[in-house]
Amino acid sequence: MLTDILRAGEKVPAGVAHLPVEEGTSLWGRLPCAADAPVLRLEPGDEAVIDTLSHEGILEDQGRDPRAFFGAHGVEPEQVLPDAIALAAGHPGRDRATDGPHVVTGPIHVAGARPGDLLKVTILEHEMRVPYGVVSNRHGRGALPGEYPAGPATVSVFAGVEDTADGPVGTMAPRAGAERTLRFPLRPFLGIMGVAVPGTDRPHSVPPGRHGGNIDINLLTAGTSLYLPVQVEGALAYVGDPHFAQGDGEVALTAMEASLRSRLRFDVIARDDAVAQFGEVVGPLAETSEYLIPTGMDEDLDLAVKDCVRHAIALLQARWGLDPEHALAYLSAATDFDISQVVDVVKGVHARIRTADFAEVRP
């Protein structure tokens, strides 16, 4: 296993704003609303280096003592992030009975962002802050609630990071003391990316929605962008729930959760330009070098799929001038609809529309 960790303030590029994750710059279990004061102010086009902290290893059912929790898995005290220790020891305001588990960094005010605009968040880089992570399964959640875990206690499976000739990979022993090791690819991304909602009530951190939040789309790796419908002045953006790896579905409840540092760029797309490019965007929309990725969300997975298909049709109409019948036919022939996650109360589906297919199409 690798041993390096990335502490707050270390190796921050000169001239780029840095947002650490600490009591004054984060929420635990809730997402920002319009009443929250920004902890960072940016101009459109600005970049920021933002630290995020995984909730795994600091929660009450894990002892709320990351040194003891990770120490039991062979992690030395100096390999535990100081900000994880500090937050677990006394972050105020979280009600275990009513709030979510996620630590969220922000909110960030982006000048000129107004309701009706789109906030474009471009992921320039993700850096692993620790060389390990955790996958947990808790009763009442996950794809098989009541079946797993088999007993009353939370099951938290430790996963390491190993350097190979092809880059870092995740490692996991299939059982305690096993000599065999499972290895799997790492694709770091942020599970939570969102904008504030109107009003004075902070949303729970678990269910995603029009504001983004806990969307858990594993395609949001370095080089991709997320478009979010702005709902309040300045957008008040935030990020959190860092992952090193996740399969579509995230069936255990969490995936390989582990702390990241992310370099992000924030741009504002005015409403008229947004409509011309994408149509009426009613929820998060992602973009990679290969795909446009509309989303659908609902507590009912069938309805989430329908929601995603409708959004995909509307996108094809606006972007390339397809009529609805041809848009639906194309989607059926050429587009994958993937389950983002099934464990966050509101289930998520995302479509991968291959932009190369439209190279010769004129609106």
Rank of each mutant, 00 (worst) to 15 (best):
E10L: 13
E10Q: 15
K11P: 08
V12M: 15
A14P: 07
G15D: 10
H18R: 13
H18C: 15
P20D: 14
V21E: 07
V21C: 15
E23N: 14
E23D: 13
G24P: 04
G24Y: 02
T25F: 05
T25H: 04
T25P: 07
T25G: 07
S26E: 00
S26M: 04
L27F: 13
G29K: 00
G29Y: 03
R30T: 12
L31N: 02
P32Q: 00
P32M: 06
P32T: 06
P32V: 02
C33A: 10
A35P: 03
A35D: 07
A35M: 03
A35H: 05
A37H: 10
A37S: 15
P38R: 10
P38E: 10
P38A: 13
V39D: 08
R41A: 12
R41P: 06
R41I: 07
L42D: 03
L42C: 08
E43Y: 01
G45Q: 09
A48C: 13
A48P: 08
V49Q: 14
V49A: 15
I50V: 15
I50A: 09
I50Y: 08
D51F: 11
D51M: 11
T52L: 14
T52C: 15
L53K: 06
H55Y: 11
E56H: 05
L59N: 05
E60T: 05
D61E: 08
D61S: 04
D61G: 01
G63P: 05
R64C: 09
D65Y: 05
P66E: 09
R67S: 13
R67Y: 00
R67V: 15
A68R: 15
F69C: 01
F69V: 07
F70P: 03
F70E: 02
G71M: 11
G71Y: 13
A72T: 06
H73W: 12
H73N: 12
G74S: 10
V75H: 07
E76H: 11
E76Y: 10
P77R: 05
E78F: 12
E78Y: 12
V80D: 06
P82I: 12
A84Y: 02
I85H: 10
I85W: 06
I85K: 06
A86M: 08
A86R: 09
A86I: 08
L87D: 01
L87Y: 07
L87T: 01
A88D: 07
A88F: 00
A89Q: 11
A89L: 10
A89H: 13
G90S: 08
G90M: 06
P92C: 10
P92A: 12
P92W: 00
G93V: 07
G93N: 11
R94Y: 03
D95I: 03
D95N: 13
D95Y: 08
R96K: 13
R96E: 14
R96V: 12
A97P: 00
A97F: 02
A97N: 12
P101G: 07
P101V: 08
P101L: 05
P101Y: 02
H102D: 14
H102G: 07
H102F: 14
V103M: 11
V103S: 01
V104W: 03
V104T: 08
G106I: 00
G106E: 04
P107H: 07
H109G: 04
H109Q: 09
V110N: 01
V110D: 03
A111Y: 05
A111K: 12
G112M: 06
A113N: 00
A113Q: 00
A113Y: 05
R114G: 01
P115G: 04
P115Q: 01
P115Y: 02
